[in-house]
């Protein structure tokens, strides 16, 4: 008789190795898991905080880093002032802290090199995070895949990963960035200043050499509902649209 291996807890400690403010409300945290893993672009991890009395709070956060990027798992967390978990990260968490994490999780909102393209990505606010992992993965692995990223933010200073995205756009290697600011005028000639709508999606898709093979929409629930409707209105088939909703 051999002993049954004891099931390993899916939770593990991960050490915060780096913290970087991205926008006034979004900060990136890099985690080094004690049991390293390889994720797929678009997947998330679950985070669990435990108080001294045993009370626990858990939330999901998308992974922003590309699977092949070294240096740990990057999460970009937006501060919700009256939230329970995100203010903890912004106000309390420090480099060297250990946080419990499990993952990688999610098998639907993912893009792998082999899935091909072109791909149309539509993100609102922190909903850009899993799309960023896809963009970075594509840049590191297969630049032949054409990408259009429609990214809606309230104002220019809240465009997460702004310098990196504009830098990628300027390379003209098949990655197209379409920014839309909902509370400020557009800064770049090709950008917009309104909410995502069907006409914007049509024009974004025209930047691709052919119709998208896959479309990914991520953000708050109202954003995803409105943006998914805009894609349908622009003639993108429902079967190729994948959505990830950040809840309320």
């Amino acid at each position: 008789m051999t002993a049954e291996p004891s099931p390993q807890s899916p939770w593990q400690a991960a050490t915060i190795t780096r913290i970087e403010k991205r926008t006034p409300r979004v900060t990136s945290f890099w985690f080094q898991p004690s049991r390293p893993f390889t994720h797929l672009a678009g997947q998330h991890v679950d985070i669990r905080l435990t108080a001294p009395d045993g009370y626990q709070a858990r939330r999901s956060y998308s992974i922003a880093s590309a699977p092949e990027a070294g240096g740990g798992v990057e999460l970009a967390i937006e501060r919700l002032d009256d939230g329970e978990v995100s203010p903890f990260f912004h106000d309390v968490a420090a480099v060297g802290d250990e946080i419990e994490l499990r993952g990688p999780l999610g098998g639907h909102f993912i893009w792998e090199e082999g899935d091909g393209g072109p791909i149309l990505l539509v993100g609102g606010g922190s909903g850009v995070v899993p799309l960023m992992a896809m963009v970075r993965h594509r840049t590191l692995r297969n630049k032949a895949v054409p990408v259009a990223l429609v990214f809606s933010a309230r104002i220019w200073d809240e465009v997460i990963f702004r310098d990196e995205l504009i830098g990628l756009d300027d390379r003209l290697d098949g990655f197209n960035l379409v920014l839309t600011l909902t509370r400020e005028p557009a800064r770049r000639p090709s950008d917009y200043s309104r909410r995502v709508d069907a006409r914007m999606i049509v024009q974004a898709a025209e930047r691709l050499p052919k119709a998208p093979r896959l479309a990914y929409v991520c953000g708050s629930n109202p954003f995803v509902s409105a943006a998914a409707d805009a894609l349908i209105g622009a003639g993108v088939p429902a079967e190729i649209i994948r959505t990830e909703r950040y809840g309320v």
Binding site: T50, A51, E84, V92
Partner: peptide, 12 residues
């Protein structure tokens, strides 16, 4: 594992 500095939380 107790998380350093997590005291508040919304206990039901």
């Amino acid at each position: 594992m107790v998380t350093r500095g997590f005291f508040s939380g919304r206990r039901p």
